[in-house]
Each structure stands twice: as C-alpha cells, then as structure tokens.
Design a protein around this nucleic acid. Sequence first.
DNA 1: CAGTGAGCGAGCTTCCGCTTGACTT
Length: 783
Amino acid sequence: MVKNLLIVESPAKAKTIEKYLGKDFIVKSSIGHIRDLPEKGIGIDVEHDFAPTYEVSTDKKKVVAELKKLAKEAETVWLATDEDREGEAIAWHLLEALGVKESKTKRVVYHEITKSAILAAIENPRSIDKALVDAQQARRILDRLVGYELSPVLWRKVKPSLSAGRVQSVAVRLIVEREREVNGFNSVPFFKVDGLFNANSSNFHAELDKRYTNEEDALGFLTKIKGAEFTVRDLEKKPAKRSPSAPFTTSTLQQEASRKLSFSVLQTMRVAQGLYEKGDITYMRTDSVNLSQQAIDGAKAEIEKSFGPKYAETRQYKTKSSGAQEAHEAIRPTDFSAKEIAGHDSNEARLYDLIRKRTIASQMANAELEKTVITIGQNKTDDNFIATGEVIIFDGFLRVYSESDDDTEEQDNSETLPMVKAGDKVNFLEANATQRFPNSLPRYTEASLVKKLEALGIGRPSTYAPTISTVQKRGYVVKESREGTPRPYKVLTLKNGEIIAATKSENTGAEKSKLFPTDIGSVVTDFLVENFSEILDYNFTAQVEEEFDIIAEGKLSWTKMLHQFYNPFHATVVKATDVKKKTSGEKLLGQDANGKNVYAKIGRYGPMIQIGDFAEGEEETKAEDKPKYSKLRADQRMETITLEEALNLFKMPRKIGLFEDKEMAAGIGRFGPYIRHDSKFYSISKEDDVYTIDEARAIEVIKDKRQKEIEKTIKIIPHEPEIRILKGRFGPYFTMDKKNYKIPKGKEAADLTLEECMEIVKTEDAAPKKKGRFTPRKKADKK
DNA sequence: CAGTGAGCGAGCTTCCGCTTGACTT
C-alpha cells in the first residue's frame, strides 16, 4: 500500500519525478486528457446551458481503471498536471473520474522539472481552480460547436467528409490568400547599378544610391559617367551589436529545424520526442522561453569552461507570443556538459546539437560589430555609390550559433573594405546595370505557417503538426516542389570606356516543399469566408481567448459567454444551410468557337471544365446539346487556367491516323503525353507536341519503342502467362504477370528454362517482402 | 491514362488539445 499517488500527464515526466520523491510516492501518468466529449454526436445540450456529456476516451479506459485502483488505496492523491488551462481541466476530470473524495486530493503545480521545484510544489498544495477549468470547458465546447456545426454544412454544400474548424479553416485561408497574392503579383522590373572599384590595391563593390525603372535611363547614367573621376565623399564607421535569440519553443524549434536541417514539422516533433524520452532534453511542447535557474547556471558553467568568462552573459527572455500559457520551460538540454549524446541516430544527434547550441548561445555575450559605410561620388553627376561592410570585433554568441531567416535573402556583407578617408581617389574598374525582378511574398512552408499561426495566437504547441497533417489529409492543401522556369534579364556593363549590353538568364519560380491550396481548399475557403466571416477572421481566436481569460479570472460565466457566441453563430449556420444551391466555385472562363459558355468548376470527381449549359426551365436538354466535360490535369488549377488551356483539354485524346489498320490517338495522362495504339501506351518526349503531332511521327514513336523492346529482350519463353527475359538497368531479369524477378548470380540469362523460372517465382513469392530502409523517391530521374 | 446536373433516399463523414504506443504499407 502506498501513502501517496502523484499523477502527471507524461510517462517520461513521471519517471523523472519518481526519482526525486522517494519511496513514499508512487508517480503515474494520465497520458494526456482522459475524458472528452463523445466522438459521435455533438455531446452538448445546447438547450440546457450547453451541459456537456463527458466520457472516458476509449484508449484511456485502461489508464483510468489503473489510476482508480491506486487512488482508492492511497492516502493522498496529488494532482500534478500542468499549470495551464488544459492541465487544470485534466486534474478536474481526474477528480471526477477516479471517484476520490476532494478532501483526499491535493493540487500541485511547478514550472520546471527539477528536484527543488518539485519539492517546493509538494510543500505548497492548493485546490483545483474551477474558474480555470470553466475556461477550458468554454474553449472545448466552442471548438466542438464550431467544428461539428460547420462541417455538416460543407458536406451538404460542397462535398462529403470535409471539415472546418476554428484553427484548420484559418490555416487554409492563409495559404489560399497567399497563393492569390503570389499569382496576382505584378513584378515590375528595375535596374540596379553596381560598381567595382579599387583602392589601396584591393577591389570592392559599391551600389548606386538610386534605381532606374527602365533600360534607357540606366544606359543614360552609364553613358554619363564614362571617364568620370571617383573620390571618397564620406566615410562613416559605427559600432553595432547583435543579440542572441531566445531559447527554443516548439514553434521556433520547428522553424529552425526546417531551415537548418530540412525537417518537416512532424519529423521535428518525432525526433524531439525521442530525445525527451531518453532524458536528453526537456519537454518539447512548450510556448515558454523561460529557463530554470539550474539551467542558466549549467549553461554559464559550460560557456566559461569552453570559451572563457567574457563569453558568458546570462539572461532571462520574455515570451512574446500572445496567449502563451507557459506551463513548461523552454526546450533545452537537460545536461549542458553533454556535448554529444550516445546511442542516438543521426537525426536525433543533429536536433540535439541544434537545441544545445541555441540554448548555450542564449546565455552568451552580444556580438560586437563595426559597420562601415563608404560614400563614393564622381564629377559627372550628383549620384553616389555606397559600399557597406561589417567587421566582427567580438564574436560573442556567434561563435556557436546564428539564426537563419527565411523571409529575406541572404545578404553578403562579408567583403572587407579598404582603408580610405574622405577625399581619397578611388579607381573605377567597371559598373553593371542589372535588371532585377522583385519577388512577391513567399509561399508558406510548414514551419513558416506555424510561425504565422503562433503570431495570430491560433493553435497550440501540441497541435501545430497535427493541424498541418489535417489540412493536407482533407485535400485542402498540398506540399509540393516545383521546378522554376528560365527568365531572361538584361545587364549593361561599362568597362574600359565601353558599354556592352548582354542578356542573361536566371531561374525563377522554383519552390521547394511549399504549401499550395487545392481547388477544393479555395472553394471551401471562399464559401466559409462568405458565410461565416466571424469564424474565419484572423482575430477570432484572439477575441475568444480574451473572453476565456476573463472566465479564468472568475469574472464571467462560461455559459453566458457561450450563449453570446452561439446564438448568432447558429443563426448563420441555419441561413447557410437554407440556401438550396451547391457550391461549385463555378467560374466563367469565356466562350468557345460556337459561342457556348466555358466554365471551371468542382464536380463530383473534382475540378473540371464544362462547355455549354443545360436548357432552362421545363425544357428537356437534347442529348446532343448536353454539356461536355473534361477533368483538369494534375498541374492545372481552376483559379489560373486560361480559356485556351481549358479548350485544349477537349482536343484530347485526339485521333491522329491509322497504323497497321488500328487507330492512333494522342492524349495527356497521369504520366504525361502519350500515344495510344492497339491499347498500348507510348510516351512522347519533350521534343514532340501532343497537340500537333502527326501520323508519320506517331508511327516513328511506336516503331522506336518496339525496337527498344526487341533490343531489351533476351528470350521469350512461351507459357501462360508469358515469361520475357529482359535486359534491365540493374542487369538481366524476367517478367511474368506484371511482376519482375531478379535472375540469381551464376545463371546465364539466355539459358534459363521454364522450370528454372518457375522455381525462382516460387521462392520469390514465398519470401517475405524486404522492408525498404529508404522510402522511394518521388522523382524517378531528372535531366 | 474515363465518367461528371439536381433531386430523391440511407448512412457515413466532423472539432481542438492533452498525451503515447499499436497498428499496417
């Protein structure tokens, strides 16, 4: 029999705390929430003050049964869940579900898992804060009402199985609106002028202090400064400093792991979970930048040992994000002296290294810099060239860590500037006027979306990764990479008194692992914004959070708040449901050659193009007048498709002619453009155009492919199904019934008999499938 | 590597936030 049962949320935490508390305590975990609203049905009695029905979650039945048994035996039950809204609610649900007397329980809280903090918490128990629990109930019930009332509207108006919610719908909206900004962005090019100079026998760059909107003006300037004399007009040196970033929260860890290690948000959390369970880092779902005193002391000792005392500068950071609950410390190593950690895979080691460096850097001195600005004038015009340089005087925290940035392009300030003074002459070597195209705001990555959501106070550390999965699972958003397209740009070069114009090429529009909205995502967003603008408002969460805070202070009843929210909200749901029409996101693209309307819309099977309309009213549409349909290709979007591209879809598949008495047709399929003949498919390479390819060329393509087949074939063994022995990229193999079989070493492919083949088939099919260590790459090959 | 309206009917889908394994491809 145990005297004390202490319950926390996380099993790993339970293990640590048990060590601190000794034999009088048994420490167990609830593994998160134990009770919730039922999954089926709304579970809220709206008519009676939103009375909720809570039930023990199916996967927690075992946990609750065990805790119940232990609680019965214990003298005191210590509810040591997190000190935030959700943690308080878990404590309350435990109290209700375990059936223990309130007098037998004590509520304890702490902000860090250190022995002193835990012991201090035990000395200062309190009772459950019911106002905070009510704030959680308001949050939970509001989310349920929004999610379970909005989603069915979408099932009726757009498509079954869709979903909407306070968090996910805003996340999708952000991506939809960013995509529209990117597509609507009009990049007006300009010319910037860069000069190359020499002073004290070293070369350096300086940029003209103005830009030109067109080539003529840029050329005019270069013409004017031909043969000019250049002198230093001004020299400015000023000290600057750079401060380290705060230690990691969940959101900033996800962002840096994305930039520095190319981890997805989900991957970061998985790897961090592994580190946490092994005891290498503190809890990884946190919104706090706070460090325990023990951690600060540990970091300081490590810094002084490794770099010397002048590199240490301890500090406590303030959490900036609104709505932070700060139940945990920042994410940090548990032991600062552990530079490398044993028994971990490389991803764990890399993430640990990132966390360790970031935390240590946060307790280090500022970097001290000297910024130099040299202004170079000339005797032909009033325009100046500006050279900027930066010299690190004292590296400070930069010695271990510098944060990456995904919004601005890397600027190169590393060039050393020559020692000059005002009035000095500098030698002009050349000047380049280069055409530049401004970029629109970038599309979101998983991590930059998390950053944006956090800034809006939407979502919590435990939900960032799942939210990103949800919006992709529902088909609202896809993560994609795209190859860019070449774009020409002009460069005018003034050198040796001559101006030369050249056209160069740069790659533009390339994207790597970015979030794109789908047509469904856009249509659903437009529908929700039109009908439920309040919920889709970027400030909705912030507003309700303010009310939750007032409830938590005991100054507002949670039922009153919900009434105020629900009555108008429910009215909008009823109104939107009453409208009979389905939402298809129909968009008129124009008219075809016969004057029929051409639409892009969402149909039963996804986005499509429709040509023609149904007859109005009673009149029956004649069969030959019925609209024609075509599905959009995978790379096409309703929002961006042109009339011409839409009409082209109806030209496919296109009859080309006859070959061996059978018809040939050209089309575009899942794997790109093809020619079909005698129910076989032949891919067309980039040199041919599916829209114009003719009979003669198509026959060539077919013959080519046949020739290659013959060259590949070593032997055909008649059998049912047929066995074909072929030459492959990885050596000879044979194929039967659409499956490929490797030919074992030591066998001559050409000599294989039917019996030998069947033997190989038998052993291969019986053998368990090898588990691939690597997932197959999506891109087969690129050239 | 197609098809493709709306309406009728049944029965299904869905939220956010807190935590881990137990599952299969």
